[in-house]
Simulated assay, not measured.
Amino acid sequence: MSSTVLVTGGAGFIGSHVVPLLLERGDRVRLMDNMSRGDRGRVAEWVATGRVELVEQDVRYGGAVHRAMSGCDQVVHLAAVSINKSEADPYESVDINIVGSNNVFKAAADHGVRRVVFASSASVYGDPDRLPMAEDDPLDPLTPYCVAKHTGEQLLAYYARRSAMTWIALRFFNVYGPGQKPTAYYTSVINHFVQRLRSGEAPVIDGKGEQSMDFVHVHDIARAVVMALDVDAARANLPINIGTGIDTSVAELARTLIDAVGVDVEPQFRPRDVLVSRRMADISRALDVLGWKPTIDVRTGMQDLVDSEIG
C-alpha cells in the first residue's frame, strides 16, 4: 500500500537517491528542503511527475514543519548541517541538527506518523576501542554534529514513548557516490585524490594512510532507508549500522582510485593528526532487522564514481 512520505533535506545528496526509490514503489513524496544546496532542476523533474510536492522551508521553523507533516504517514529525516561545518559554526549545527530534528520528531508524534527513519551517523561512536563497531558499543561523539546525531536518537526514543510513532535511526558510515558534495568531510578525500590524479599528480595522504573508513555507496544507503520504512513496529525503535563491514585504509583507497583513473603514480604521505583512526561497521543487525546487505563493493563503487561525476 502506497504512503505519503515526508522527506526532509530530500533535495540533497542522499535524498536524490532516496526519492526515486520511493517513487518506484508507488509512494507520494512531500519534499521539505530550504534549497540552499538542492538541485532545483532535478526537483522540478520529480514535481512534474505529479507525485512529488516541494515545500521550500527550513526544519528550524516548527510551524512550517507541522504544516508539511499534515497528512504524511512516514518520515525520512535527512536535513542536517555537515560535520565539518558544525565545528566552524556550532550554533548553526545545534540549531539545525538538534532544534530542527526536535521539530520534525515532535510534529511526527503529534500528527500520528507511524514511522520515522532518521539519518544518524557512525560518528556517534567517536574513535572506537574495537572493530567492528556494534550498535551497543559505548558512544563518544566528538563534535557538535556527532552530539546532535546522538541527541536525535534520544529525542526519537522520548517521543516514541509518548505516541504511536516508531523509529529507526540508521547510523551511516562513510557515504560516497554520484552527486556527493566535494566538501563532504569523510569523502572529500576521494575528491581530492581524483582531482590530483586527473591532473597527473600523486594523491597526498595524511599520516601513514593507515586510518581506515567503511565506505558505503549511496545507492545502498538509499535502499536501507526505504527498507527501514517497512520494518515491523515490534522490531523498530533502535539504531542500525549501515556500512559494508569492510574497513578500507586511506592508502588502499588511493591505490584503488589510481587504478580507476588509470594513471601511473605513487601516493605521497605527509604527517598530520586525524580525527578518527579506524572505522568498520558490524552490520549483522541491518541484515537481521532490515534484511539489508550492501550490494556495491568499494572497487566497483569508486570506478563508478570516477566514470560518472567527479572531476
Rank of each mutant, 00 (worst) to 15 (best):
G15H: 12
S70V: 08
M1L: 05
D214H: 05
D27S: 06
V55C: 09
R60H: 02
V175R: 05
D232M: 08
R235C: 09
Y158P: 03
T143E: 13
A254I: 09
D110N: 12
V47Y: 01
T187R: 05
V298P: 01
H219K: 08
E252N: 14
L290N: 09
L257I: 01
G301V: 04
I258A: 02
E153D: 13
D232P: 05
R67L: 13
V59T: 15
P128N: 13
T244E: 08
D307K: 05
G62T: 01
F269C: 09
P132Q: 14
S16P: 01
R60T: 02
G311A: 14
N237W: 10
E87K: 07
I240Q: 01
A88L: 14
E135M: 05
F13M: 01
N102E: 09
V116S: 00
Q211C: 03
W167V: 02
A202S: 15
E309C: 11
G200Q: 15
D282A: 12
L54P: 09
V226E: 04
V43F: 04
S277V: 08
G9F: 09
I83Y: 06
S3Y: 14
I246N: 05
F172Y: 15
V265K: 10
F13E: 13
R25S: 03
G112F: 00
E24I: 02
A44H: 11
Q303P: 01
Q211T: 05
T256R: 09
W46C: 12
P128I: 11
N103V: 12
A107Y: 03
V276D: 00
E210H: 10
F118L: 06
W167G: 03
L197H: 06
K208T: 15
M165T: 01
I205P: 13
R235K: 14
N237Y: 09
